[in-house]
C-alpha cells in the first residue's frame, strides 16, 4: 500500500542526503519524493510516497524522526488531504490529429503549454490516478517525453502540518542554524595544504 509521509526538515546542506541514505540503507521503497520550501523560515517540506505495510511505514516515520535534521513527521494517508502532482507530457501529434489530443487533454483537465508542428506539451496538475488515465489515453499517439514531480500533499481544512514554534531562538542562534555548513559568500583567501 502507498503511504503519504510528510516530513518537515531543516533547510540545511546534507538533509536530502541523510533522508535518501536512510531509505536506501533500511531498504524502504520510495515511490516519489518531492522537496520544497515552506511558509516557515528555514524549514523545508518533503512529501514521500512509501510503498509498504503498516509496520514498515511505522519504522519509516520513526527512523526519519531519529534524524536530527527532521523536525516533524506525519502520515497523511488516512487524512482528508489535497494530493497533487504535476506532469509534463510531450506527445507526438501533427495538425492532422492535434484536435484529438487536445480533446483528451480537456477531458482530463490538462493544458497545452507548447506546440510545434510535430508535438505538443501537456501540463497536468492532478491526482496520480488522473495523470495515469491521461497517459493511458495519450500512449497511442506516442509519448515522446514524460516528467512527473511526485505527489505533494496538504491537509484540508484549518489544521496544518507546520512546526509552529519559532520563539525562543536568539538572532545569533538563528543565523547559526541557517547558515552553518554553507560556504561563506565572497572570496576566501587561498590556503594551500
Amino acid at each position: 500500500m502507498l503511504h503519504t509521509v510528510v516530513a518537515l526538515v531543516e533547510d540545511r546542506p546534507g538533509v536530502l542526503n541523510r533522508v535518501a541514505s536512510l531509505f536506501r540503507r533500511r531498504g524502504f521503497n520510495i515511490e516519489s519524493l518531492a522537496v520544497g520550501t515552506t511558509h516557515e523560515d528555514g524549514i523545508s517540506r518533503m512529501t514521500i510516497i512509501v510503498d509498504g505495510h503498516e509496520g514498515i511505514v511505522d519504522q519509516v516515520e520513526k527512523q526519519l524522526m531519529k534524524l536530527v535534521d527532521v523536525i516533524k513527521v506525519e502520515d497523511l494517508t488516512q487524512t482528508e488531504a489535497v494530493n497533487r502532482e504535476l506532469a509534463l507530457i510531450k506527445v507526438r501529434c501533427t495538425a492532422a490529429n492535434r484536435r484529438e489530443v487536445l480533446e483528451i487533454a480537456t477531458v482530463f483537465r490538462a493544458q497545452a503549454v507548447d506546440l510545434s508542428p510535430e508535438s505538443v506539451i501537456l501540463q497536468a496538475v492532478a491526482q496520480r490516478d488522473r495523470v495515469n488515465g491521461l497517459l493511458d489515453n495519450l500512449r497511442p499517439y506516442g509519448v515522446m517525453e514524460l516528467m512527473r514531480t511526485g505527489r505533494v500533499s496538504m491537509r484540508r481544512g484549518t489544521e496544518v502540518t507546520a512546526y509552529g514554534d519559532q520563539n525562543g531562538e536568539s538572532e545569533e542562534m538563528h543565523r547559526f542554524h541557517h547558515e552553518s555548513g554553507r560556504l561563506p559568500e565572497g572570496e576566501l583567501p587561498y590556503v594551500s595544504d
Binding site: 546534507g14 541523510r18 541514505s21 536530527v68 542562534m173 547559526f176 555548513g181 561563506p184
Partner: peptide
C-alpha cells in the same frame, strides 16, 4: 568525510566559519 560518516553517526557537521565552531 561528512558524507562517508553520515550513516555511521548520530549526527555530523561541516563547519564553514570559525564563529560557528562554539555553537557546533
Amino acid at each position: 568525510a561528512t558524507g562517508i560518516l553520515m550513516p555511521a553517526v548520530k549526527h555530523n557537521y561541516l563547519v564553514m566559519r570559525a564563529q560557528d565552531l562554539a555553537p557546533t
